[in-house]
Design a protein around this nucleic acid. Structure first.
Lengths: 204, 204
DNA sequence: TTGTTCTGATTGAATGTTCATTCAACACTA
DNA sequence: TAGTGTTGAATGAACATTCAATCAGAACAA
């Protein structure tokens, strides 16, 4: 299966995709604060006016772009079934760290969009939904693990929340401060999953 | 000792303080994307032009404001000595959750500023320094705990990093998605500290 | 004391720029 | 011919920034 990130490099399959790619390029290059229609069109091989043929406003374009980004996130959750819940969880972590964290531009862009959710109700709604979806998938894995006996009887929602909080923290840190050791966080996360979840793991 | 947050309500002691308060009010009300000199001056009892008498540009004003906010953060670390390292750590957590997380406007403003660090070198530098300071204080506490025998022989820097990542994640989540249960994260954090650090705690 | 001058604070009204958005016209294709 | 894609050149609003002009008080001389 293709990486969800490839859509940013591949030949665009539609005008919308070309616009999404151009927006991504402009956002990566200039940052959200300096993202203008002009700069998006600089990364687009058609004219600036054409953007208004496809979107009624800059705002509408950006909202669509946010949706496009969030799809990439949801595609990051692996679909293949692993042998047991622990393997499944580690696969999620691998995907997150090997694919997402390998693309600092993507994480930076995502964080800048997400920060809009602090004051913009539309963004907040979309991110909340996306978030709820991811948390539910994580909780599913944990619940399955408990049922099959791989995991202890933890609260699945609570544990999923903690994992997500740690990942979100890693995103924020990687994007905004220097010299973050992302592997350290990854290790601690795997460690936490082992100690806190596995039934047959000796403590500490 | 006064809460570091009071500076936002108190009668300002200087023009600079009045400008910082006005900037905070405008940022809280409109968000970073819609923060204009006009809006700052709307919260200021003097004229818009006066802002340029004190700062050479909007940018310079905002950089000073970031410094002002970061001072509030550093003031959050308690100075009183507790009986042992565990008490000390819990006091830090209490301060962070009872003072900072009780002020959603403050956290939102801080996150919006911090996100600028994703593309602005000046911001990145300041946040990295602040971050390094906090992490060092946390590592000090952990190191002291190990020496006095309260804590196990963990890697102080590593553990501090994990704690900060969790707190940063909590900030990001609280500011950008609906219905976050901050107490859940707080509980898990205290729980983590107990299980991972305390020497005389039964595992799980 | 009164008057004078100097300095920093303060203001309202420009100024010029950047930007999102519009639109009339042209081109291609079914 | 109708419809859709495409463009370059306006338009107008929102902003940051400037500036010439007052104002208030301190310092200081008479």
């Amino acid at each position: 299966m293709a990486s969800p990130m490839e859509l940013f490099d591949e030949e665009p399959g539609s005008t919308r995709e070309a616009i999404m790619q151009a927006t991504y390029a402009a956002l990566a290059k200039h940052g959200y604060a300096d993202l203008t229609i002009q700069r998006i069109s600089d990364e687009f091989d058609k004219s600036k006016s054409l953007l208004y043929h496809h979107y009624e406003s800059k705002d509408a374009l950006l909202v669509d772009f946010m949706g496009f980004m969030l799809e990439r996130i949801e595609d990051t959750i692996p679909i293949e079934q692993q042998e047991n819940a622990y393997e499944q969880l580690v696969l999620v972590f691998d995907q997150v760290f090997d694919e997402l964290f390998a693309e600092p531009d993507f994480l930076r862009a995502l964080l800048e969009l997400r920060t809009q959710a602090a004051t913009d109700e539309t963004y907040r709604q979309e991110f909340s939904d996306n978030e709820a979806y991811i948390r539910a998938r994580l909780a599913d894995i944990i619940r399955a693990g408990i049922e099959e006996g791989t995991f202890r009887e933890v609260d699945p929602a609570r544990t999923a929340e903690l994992i997500l909080t740690l990942i979100d923290g890693a995103v924020l840190r990687q994007a905004t401060i220097d010299d973050i050791d992302i592997d350290l966080i990854r290790d601690e996360l795997v460690n936490y999953a082992r100690l806190r979840l596995l039934t047959d793991e000796a403590d500490v």
